[in-house]
Simulated assay, not measured.
Amino acid sequence: MLIGCPKEIKPQEFRVGLTPNAAGEAVSRGHKVIVETNAGAGSGFTDDDYRAMGAEVLDTAEEIFARADMIVKVKEPQAVERKMLRPDQLLFTYLHLAPDPAQTHDLLESGCTAIAYETVTDDRGGLPLLAPMSEVAGRLAPQVGAWTLQKANGGRGVLMGGVPGVGPANVVVIGGGVVGTHAARIAAGMGADVTVLDRSLPRMRYLDDVFGGVFKTGFSSAGNTAELVAQADMVIGAVLIPGAAAPKLVSRAQLSGMKPGAVLVDVAIDQGGCFETSKATTHADPIYEVDGIMHYCVANMPGAVARTSTIALGNATLPFMLALADKGWRQACEEDPHLLNGLNVHAGELTYDAVGKALGIDVISPSQALKK
């Protein structure tokens, strides 16, 4: 198979879909790999690093899209990239279609087959290709939140860990999954007073058993959430419904009851955000204010630590990418139902139910798509 990796063009996206080592693994199995020049520069990989692994470096994305059987990326294809996709071409990347009707329409129009990292599953009910970036984003959230909390950035001017005689920041993390757990660990490590809210009693028991004393847990009822949000210096939104639009857990009306200069960090912004007032921002202009509350809603947070993120993502995607290349997408998905769960689009049809419900589009099952 001819595997293509274009340079990411989303603003301030420095990750790359293939590491040189991943390219070398594919080449060693008899596949051809083409990479756009400088695709890995933001993650510290040179064109010569790819050439040393047997990949061919091309000058333009147009050449990559025109020649490749499979396109491997990090972020969802941008409008100009979607125009270059074609029928019978495989796209393997993050998609986050539920809050993005324009992208969904373009992918359906292209006729391509698109497998989304964020909906591939595993035997434990996890999301193995989302988990590494959730870990990174979770660990970054208190860091960027602490920066936003500084007075010069519009925040309350509260230090996360306080100092002797002055109490620490009060941090509420909504969601006790991968993102929330990592966010809570880092925020607590910075000295903040942290509470994690979740609706799963087994999950809260697990967090108490493993992290008891490091941070507190609470049940994520509407009333309890509203009460704790009003007391918080920082709220980290870390709620995920796989493939679906994120639920809105903090309304605009609640902002008036929060402390002036408090910070909302929305890690769920890729799926539309879990605060009513959230809108996607970029690393170049990451924060904005609504009703006196500062919002940090960068849609590609892990791109800020591109080298760590690229390597972590590559470690997770490599086995799936090789299976798709070795067997073709149909056989690979027939043999691995977890990879089949990643199928979102095929030949002009939507194949992921949660996206169909979010956008009001008819859906066929992935098993039906295999027969088309």
Rank of each mutant, 00 (worst) to 15 (best):
G303L: 03
C297W: 03
Y296C: 12
T308L: 13
M301Y: 05
L318E: 15
P286E: 07
A316K: 03
G314T: 04
T308S: 11
I311Y: 04
P319E: 08
T317P: 08
T282A: 11
G292I: 04
C297L: 03
F320C: 11
V290H: 08
N300K: 08
V298A: 08
A299S: 13
F320E: 10
A312W: 00
M294V: 15
V305D: 00
A299C: 12
N315G: 06
A304D: 05
D285W: 14
I287G: 15
N300R: 05
A306Y: 01
A312P: 00
A316P: 00
E289R: 13
A316Q: 03
A284M: 12
I293S: 10
M294N: 15
A312K: 04
I311L: 13
P302E: 02
Y296T: 09
Y296H: 13
M301G: 07
T282K: 07
A299W: 13
A316D: 01
T282W: 11
I293H: 11
T310Y: 02
M301V: 09
V305N: 00
D285R: 13
A284P: 12
D285A: 15
R307M: 06
T310F: 06
L313D: 00
A312Y: 01
G303E: 02
S309N: 02
M294A: 15
A284W: 10
H295S: 11
M301C: 10
I287Y: 15
L318M: 14
M301P: 05
I287V: 15
P319Q: 06
A312D: 02
T317Q: 08
N315R: 13
H295C: 09
E289A: 14
Y296F: 14
L318S: 14
F320T: 08
E289N: 12
V290L: 05
A304G: 13
I287W: 14
E289D: 13
P286Q: 08
N315I: 03
P302Q: 08
M321N: 14
A284H: 10
D291P: 10
E289G: 11
Y288L: 02
P302V: 01
A284E: 14
Y296P: 07
D291C: 08
V305K: 00
R307E: 03
S309H: 01
T282E: 15
G292C: 07
N300V: 05
F320Y: 14
M294P: 10
